[in-house]
Nucleic acid binder design. Structure first.
Lengths: 224, 224
DNA sequence: CCAAAAGTGTTCAGCCTACACCCATGC
DNA sequence: GCATGGGTGTAGGCTGAACACTTTTGG
């Protein structure tokens, strides 16, 4: 192709992630407060321009680490946003991902991280966002709800060991639904993805729950 | 962002489609014979660089029309290929789509089109492809097989009116499976997506089949 | 011993699977 | 009238939904 042709020059790629986690009070998304124009002072999703020598996913991981201190997230590409005017300075095509992380990993990091400008927002309390990020976040959320049904992706939102009630709560939060305790347990165990593991010794009120873990990594399998 | 920073300069976007149709002898993909270096003489998928003033999907539709004469296909984005060396002249990120079209529309076009370099290949007889297009085609095919289960996407592979056996054959081809005629009919009718329509008058051997059409456009609904 | 939370089993309905015979047409 | 291809119904097994009581712990 003709490298100097004006039709193609000055294009760039944005890698952008809607980062989600589950907190006690439900699903949360991570937002960054922008420090520079354009959209100075606005909340936006995490991401940025991809360098020439990295894949889009490498660029995304780098941007997330630089801006939030988080790493080793689970990523999944779900869309492309390419309105020619979506970014004011030059033509940028956004490649959009959802990224998922277990809240416990976030908590461990929080004490040492450079997250002064990053904050978790409950999904029902998202402010207005800069760029086209509101659209990206909404489509990312829809994608998350879809994939939660079709694989054991919840694995990445949970600690290594977890109880049935914890697992059930995540499905109920994400799918905005209630399930019968007995049926839920039967269903999840029948999928053959879980194995029982030993108690973690922490005692709370009530009968202690059994602990489980996922036998294998992410697998495509219809959950509901 | 800094528009002149070397880290970001000289990037471009490829929109690339694995175009599929159903012919009598099964699923076929459209390939283009490349006329220039690099990969001169090799078969590749349809696509090309996106202009500054168009969305990726607009660029894709334009490229497909320029190179094959086809238009009004159904598109669905399924992946991003961004190995920094995937294209020799400059850094190009490929945004990959599947595109689907009814073979009858292709036949009508064929007589007048500029498709000297485009040819349909049965999916089991694909030659070696240039660039990373073999990988893109394989992942596109996997995507197609997935979505066929979850929506009435077959609509775009069929003429407006079709018979149950025609419909069944498409599912069997794509899913590489056999279904019982009675159960297939029951299942498809129970989804409520089809309505009976009048015969097209064309007579062949055997008892004439009833004709159906889809009541509405593409809908997400689990088919199997 | 009381409150809190988790574990457990059975019944019913709807759906999927397997399966064989009759019917309308062209030649 | 025969060959070709399409249409149709039923019985059994499986899966998902509804539902209430018992068990273990902390205080």
């Amino acid at each position: 192709m003709d490298v100097t042709n004006k039709k193609y020059s000055n294009q760039g790629i944005h890698a952008i992630a809607a980062i989600f986690t589950i907190e006690n009070d439900g699903l949360s998304a991570l937002l960054i407060k922008r420090k520079k124009e354009p959209y100075k002072g606005k909340w936006i999703l995490t991401g940025g321009a991809v360098y020439n020598d990295e894949t889009v996913e490498e660029g995304l991981a780098r941007e997330i680490y630089e801006k939030t201190g988080l790493k080793d997230l689970y990523y999944e590409q779900f869309g492309v946003f390419s309105n020619p005017n979506r970014s004011p300075l030059m033509r940028m095509v956004a490649i959009a991902y959802i990224a998922l992380i277990d809240i416990q990993k976030v908590k461990i990091l929080k004490e040492t991280s450079h997250t002064q400008n990053a904050e978790w927002f409950n999904i029902n309390e998202i402010p207005k966002l800069g760029y086209d990020h509101e659209k990206i976040l909404n489509e990312g959320l829809a994608h998350l709800k879809k994939i939660i049904l079709k694989s054991n992706i919840v694995k990445v939102l949970l600690p290594d060991k977890f109880t049935m009630p914890q697992l059930q709560k995540i499905y109920e939060t994400l799918l905005n639904n209630k399930y019968d305790r007995r049926n839920f347990r039967k269903k999840l165990l029948s999928l053959g993805l879980l194995e029982e593991t030993e108690d973690d010794g922490i005692r709370k009120v009530g009968k202690p729950a059994k602990y489980y873990r996922f036998k294998q990594d992410i697998v495509e399998k219809s959950i509901f």
